[in-house]
Amino acid sequence: MEPNTTLEFVQETMVDFAQLTGLEPVSDHPKRYLWTDAFAVCNYLELFRLTNDDVYRDLALRLVDQVHHTLGRHRDDDTRNGWISGLDDEKGERHPTKGGLRIGKKLNERRPDEPPSERLEWDQDGQYYHYLIKWMHALNQVSRVTGDPNYIKWAVELAKAAHTGFTYVPPSGGRKRMYWKMSIDLTYPLVPSMGQHDPLDGFITYSELQMSTKNSEQYSRSDLSAEIADMANICQGKSWATNDPLGIGGLLSDALRIAQLMRDGFAYGNLLEVVMESAMIGMGSFVRDNTLRLPADYRLAFRELGISIGLKGVEKLREWIEENPDLFKNPLRQQVEAIREYVPIGKTIERFWMDSKNRETCNWTEHREINMVMLATSLVPNGFLLI
């Protein structure tokens, strides 16, 4: 597909997303979902960069504001009201992320006196750490594009709130662990298990925010050193290899962010090689399973698109390695060359889901907003991938 046609497709997709979710025209009850909206913010920023059209920058800023005023406040069907942080209206406006942000699920959260239901939990609200991480990254991208320090301030405040709410020391003692899902007010866990990549994503994202605050003349007061050290400790001895395509793509995206942070002076030992090795193991498993042979009815677009987004960063990673031979070790070059063999898979995934017939299936329409936004990210990925 020619570049101008690809850009037009992404523009149309993100305009449709704004209409479907109540961003433009503005709805009294917008349909906000934190993971999807984080990718959407990055897409609007990238469209602004590519077109120099202020409409897309304004959509990104309006989306941030709408997320904060929707997911940073209690639900309409909740007996509580106001900011979930408990701040009054005036302070909440200045610190909209200080209590975290809701997921945006259809059903209200499970009360602490209610028995858990694995089936219902997927549709119940609360807070996910891995969604909060994506929103921190989106806020950092907004700050980077606009130069407004408020966005990085909100990202750091969200990092501190999430870290306090999700990390804990087990009753038996030992190293800190993390909960996977917390209540809306961050007072009790809804799913006590730990997400496989949550500590890694937290470690990298906190480092990203730390870099941004140090580079900002207007906002250099915050320090995430303690939180970064906590995450580094939780990460020790963990395995990152996964056969989940969304997780594999996340590892590849993480690898690119690690490389960017290393170029800016962050030292990570052999973390980049470890992450790339885990991604290689995952890609091998994904290829052996060969789920791409299945018809659209049996495939989840947004999970596959995680891989295609991650693979988009491989060429940039290779370029940086060639430009900085003293910084990146030789085994990494071999890993990158090996992973490049999988790049055509990403293009295959994109072509499949750009076919309008495949977007008419139930599996697409049931997850329409997240599917369309992540397809757009895969087609114009730099707003998400480059920090």
Rank of each mutant, 00 (worst) to 15 (best):
L190W: 09
L190A: 14
G265D: 10
G126Y: 04
R263V: 14
D76F: 06
M136V: 05
Q124M: 11
L311E: 14
A38Q: 03
P189K: 15
T36A: 05
A138Q: 00
I84S: 09
R111E: 13
R177Y: 10
W180R: 15
S207G: 12
Q218F: 08
T70W: 01
E8D: 14
Y219Q: 06
N4G: 08
V380T: 11
E157W: 12
F352W: 06
G250K: 05
I234S: 10
N52W: 04
K105N: 14
D65F: 04
E114Y: 06
P149W: 01
K312M: 02
E93N: 09
P344D: 04
I258T: 07
N215E: 15
F48E: 14
N140F: 09
T361I: 10
G237P: 05
R111A: 13
T361L: 03
R73W: 04
N108D: 10
M194C: 07
G72M: 02
L251V: 01
K153E: 02
P171F: 09
W35K: 08
V67N: 02
M262Q: 10
D123F: 09
Y206W: 09
G165S: 12
E337C: 08
K329H: 13
R57S: 05
R119P: 02
R144P: 00
H29C: 08
K91C: 05
L107K: 09
E369C: 00
L34P: 05
Q335N: 07
G249K: 04
M136L: 07
T6L: 15
L101S: 12
V336Y: 03
L209C: 07
F39Y: 09
I345H: 01
G313I: 06
A232D: 14
E341L: 12
D58E: 13
P381S: 04
N382Q: 13
E2M: 11
I184M: 04
I281R: 11
V314E: 02
D77C: 02
R57V: 00
P149D: 00
H29L: 12
G86C: 05
E157V: 08
R32T: 13
E12H: 11
V274W: 03
K347N: 13
E157M: 10
T205A: 09
L252S: 07
M262P: 02
S85R: 05
T21V: 01
W320L: 11
L224I: 10
D37E: 01
L190N: 11
D123R: 10
G310F: 00
E369F: 01
W320K: 11
K357Y: 06
P381M: 02
Y219H: 07
P112S: 14
G173S: 13
A60E: 01
P295G: 07
S193K: 15
L71C: 04
T167R: 15
N108M: 14
L305A: 05
H130M: 09
V10F: 04
S378E: 02
G250Y: 05
E319W: 12
E322P: 00
F9M: 07
N150R: 15
N363Q: 08
P3Y: 09
L224K: 06
Y219L: 12
N81V: 06
N382L: 06
I248H: 00
